[in-house]
Design a protein around this nucleic acid. Structure first.
Length: 109
DNA sequence: TTGGTGACTACAG
DNA sequence: TCTGTAGCCACCA
């Protein structure tokens, strides 16, 4: 678990784990924080394998606040339910108050 | 070892 | 303003 040995995936997990309760962030924000702003796809790919690793992947959405990754969760609306249980309003698979709950790792960390 | 893939993003027309 | 295309890079087979 040395920082130097952490792979890109592990770094994504570390950042995702630090997302505060009731907050969400975007793939691009994480990618940018890791110094790979144009590799946002890798962030999503990483989160694909984050299920079961205590990583709140449901708090990571795309730039518009859309729950594009909810398909990778067990239930079709599991991701939405998890967010709503944290006080995040979801409508049409999108975070309504995205601006309010957005958490930027490059600024918060 | 090489090629394909992906929960995205940004730029150009 | 909206739509389409290209790029990006690590993991898996």
């Amino acid at each position: 678990m040395k920082p130097e040995t952490l792979s890109f995936f592990d770094k994504v997990y570390e950042v995702a784990k630090q997302i505060p309760y009731g907050r969400v962030t975007s793939f691009g924000a994480i990618a940018n924080f890791l110094g790979a702003a144009r590799s946002a796809r890798m962030v999503g790919y990483a989160l694909n394998g984050s299920v079961g690793k205590d990583v709140p992947a449901h708090r990571v959405v795309n730039r518009k606040g859309l729950l594009t990754g909810k398909h990778h969760f067990e239930g079709t609306n599991l991701m939405q339910q998890l967010l709503e249980s944290e006080g995040v309003i979801i409508e049409d698979n999108q975070v309504v108050n995205f601006d309010k709950v957005f958490w930027d790792p490059s600024k918060e960390l």
